[in-house]
């Protein structure tokens, strides 16, 4: 690895690498500018250069790293999990339940996806594996009435955390987004504080569309934090950089596999190094 001078060609290369990591042209351009301002013309090894890129990105990500904690009183803490189809909501719920159980919290799940084929069966299997109760209704039933029952039961039993699954929906589907707003409203009927958390699950393999997902879900359902799944592949999740700059929403955790213990705290330095290609 020889020395390079930080010139326009090298900056172009960095910008391209960042685009390949899904930062998008705008955010990638901003990182490029920051580097140029600080070090243009400097002799720098490729390693140092990548470290510098990682540092730029880490500085953007650090302020938004914030674990999801169970603190609500009165109980339960209601966590609504939302996102587009197939992003990993149901699996992430199982992982969160597992994590909270390991910390000795009592957890309950609610099967708010009554639409997708066998969605309830999928969540039931996870609930059994984790060893937590699931509040469920009939396939095709009204999700709002199930989540209402769940809050009631969670409150009666004094459960620490109630995690609510929802059907996947694309953010441009008006009717489905209205339904989500309704679910959110119903959650607050017995306890005005609920939902305490509205977690948007983003798929790392998604590109710039993730920004529009954040935009619309935040407006309709008041997103309070993000979890990014599928970071065990080659997708690097650069969209988080753009998201941090644009929305500043907390990032709680990342998914790195299909099993229960495949949820990791969001480590901004590590993710930055992955995006910059140092880790």
């Amino acid at each position: 690895v020889g020395n390079t001078r930080l010139d326009d060609a090298t900056l172009d290369e960095i910008e391209d690498a960042l685009i390949m990591s899904d930062l998008g042209p705008e955010a990638a351009g901003r990182v490029r500018e920051a580097l140029r301002e600080q070090r243009f013309g400097a002799e720098i090894t490729e390693r140092q250069l990548r470290e510098a890129v990682a540092e730029e990105i880490a500085a953007i990500l650090r302020p938004v790293a914030k674990p999801l904690e169970v603190t609500a009183f009165p109980r339960p803490q209601v966590i609504l999990v939302i996102g587009v189809n197939g992003s990993g909501k149901t699996t992430t719920i199982a992982k969160l339940a597992h994590l909270f159980m390991e910390d000795d919290y009592e957890v309950m799940l609610a099967a708010g996806d009554t639409f997708r084929a066998a969605a309830i069966g999928q969540l039931q299997t996870w609930a059994d594996r984790v060893g937590v109760p699931l509040v469920r209704g009939p396939e095709g039933g009204d999700p709002a009435s199930i989540v209402f029952d769940a809050v009631k039961r969670g409150t009666d039993e004094g459960t620490d955390a109630l995690i609510v699954d929802t059907a996947g929906r694309l953010q441009n589907k008006r009717e489905l987004m209205d339904e989500l707003a309704k679910i959110r409203k119903v959650l607050g009927r017995l306890n005005p504080e609920a939902p305490h958390d509205v977690v948007l699950v983003l798929d790392a393999t998604n590109g710039q569309n993730a920004l529009s997902q954040i935009d619309v879900f935040q407006e309709v359902a008041g997103v309070t934090g993000l979890i990014m799944t599928k970071l065990d592949g080659t997708a690097r999740g650069g969209i988080l950089v753009a998201a941090a700059q644009k929305y500043g929403l907390p990032i709680h955790a990342i998914g790195v596999g299909e099993q229960l213990d495949d949820l990791r705290p969001f480590d901004p330095d590590l993710v930055a190094r992955v995006i910059a290609g140092v880790a």
Partner: peptide, 30 residues
């Protein structure tokens, strides 16, 4: 909705099995 990872995915799958075509899902999105 796939981003830049599409290249890695497509190349790896076509290296392993004889792909004959693609189905693009969620074209109803924005």
């Amino acid at each position: 909705l796939t981003g830049q990872d599409a290249v890695n995915v497509a190349q790896s799958f076509s290296d392993e099995v004889p792909l004959t075509g693609v189905i693009l899902t969620r074209m109803d999105g924005d």
